[in-house]
């Protein structure tokens, strides 16, 4: 792969108006999603989840349980989709792969010194390569926010391009960690850098920093994806992660995707939720649509 020089790219910092972005998000939230549209939306959201466990105390047992849940979301509700992927640390990729690959569920692995990204490029590349060798279908990398704040945008760009190369056939999700970027102008610029450097998905957050995904941040990223699509005709995926734990909010995210990018993005090839507790609320709402009553949380498995 020939190296692209960051400075040769036709990208420029673009103004983003926070007040306007927030007003637009309020409009998405005023959409009323009822009946069939709701059921379809809830199932769609389930099928877009990257079911995630990223803890220091993760064990084989925990990963096994997670992987089982990925394809058996509820013990009695028929006709449910599976989640899109399970997302784990690199050391659990092999195990996860062996448990879910025959279910059509992808294995995503974080890499590149997740979550801080404060390490050397050669280790980040090595970690990525190893995760892919172990069977990861997708790599969730973090950008070097420190370098971004230092104004070393070409470093950030080159690093993403190198990790992309190390991914081979695995799809690359680039985590911007928007909670550390400080403002929406920076979110847009970081999105552009990631997309130009070869991101297959751009992703809001690691889940370790607050705020994680918010609608305004996600809208700006979706707009960056749209701008890229308008310029080049190429689609890029989006993954908000962290902080989306209830079904209503998830449905409003889907409305935002539909009205910003279009229905072509409404599937797990192009849109994901990075979440662990969202699945249960989606399930709770689905069961409620069927039975007319909310079930107690005890009926939904805590994995």
């Amino acid at each position: 792969m020939t190296k692209v020089d960051f400075n040769s790219l036709d990208i420029r910092r673009k103004a983003v108006d926070q007040v306007g972005v927030e007003e637009r998000c309020a409009r998405f939230k005023s959409r009323s999603i009822k009946k069939d549209a709701k059921i379809q939306g809830l199932k769609m959201a389930l099928n877009m989840i990257d079911l995630t466990t990223l803890e220091g105390k993760d064990t084989e047992g925990k990963v096994r349980q997670l992987c089982h849940k990925a394809s058996h979301l509820h013990y009695s509700y028929d006709g449910l989709p599976t989640v899109a992927a399970v997302c784990v640390y690199p050391s659990f990729v092999k195990l996860a792969k062996s448990l879910v690959s025959n279910k059509g569920i992808k294995v995503a692995s974080v890499a590149t010194a997740f979550p801080s990204g404060q390490s050397f490029l050669k280790y980040k590349i090595a970690e990525t390569e190893e995760a892919v060798q172990e069977g990861a279908d997708e790599i969730d990398m973090v950008i070097s926010r420190g370098k971004f704040h230092q104004g070393e945008y070409s470093y950030v760009f080159d690093e993403i391009a190198s990790v992309k190369e190390a991914c081979g056939k695995a799809r690359l999700k680039v985590i911007l960690e928007t909670g550390e970027l400080g403002n929406l102008d920076a979110v847009y610029y970081a999105s552009q850098i990631a997309i130009e450097a070869g991101a297959d998905f751009i992703k809001t957050s690691t889940g370790k920093i607050k705020p994680a995904a918010t609608m305004p941040v996600s809208l700006v990223m979706l707009e960056a994806i749209r701008d890229h699509y308008f310029r080049t005709g190429k689609m890029v995926g989006m993954k908000p992660a962290g902080g989306i734990s209830n079904a209503k909010l998830a449905l409003h995210y889907l409305i935002m995707v539909k009205e910003t990018l279009g229905e072509a993005w409404l599937n797990n090839q192009w849109f994901r939720f990075g979440a662990s507790s969202l699945a249960n609320d989606l399930l709770k709402q689905l069961v409620k649509q069927e039975s007319g009553m909310y079930q107690s949380a005890n009926y939904f498995a805590l994995d």
Binding site: R31, Y229, A264
Partner: peptide, 16 residues
Amino acid sequence: MAKAKKDNDWNLAPAP
């Protein structure tokens, strides 16, 4: 915009 696959259609139900 990119053409959506048929099964991607997601239309809002009436909410009067």
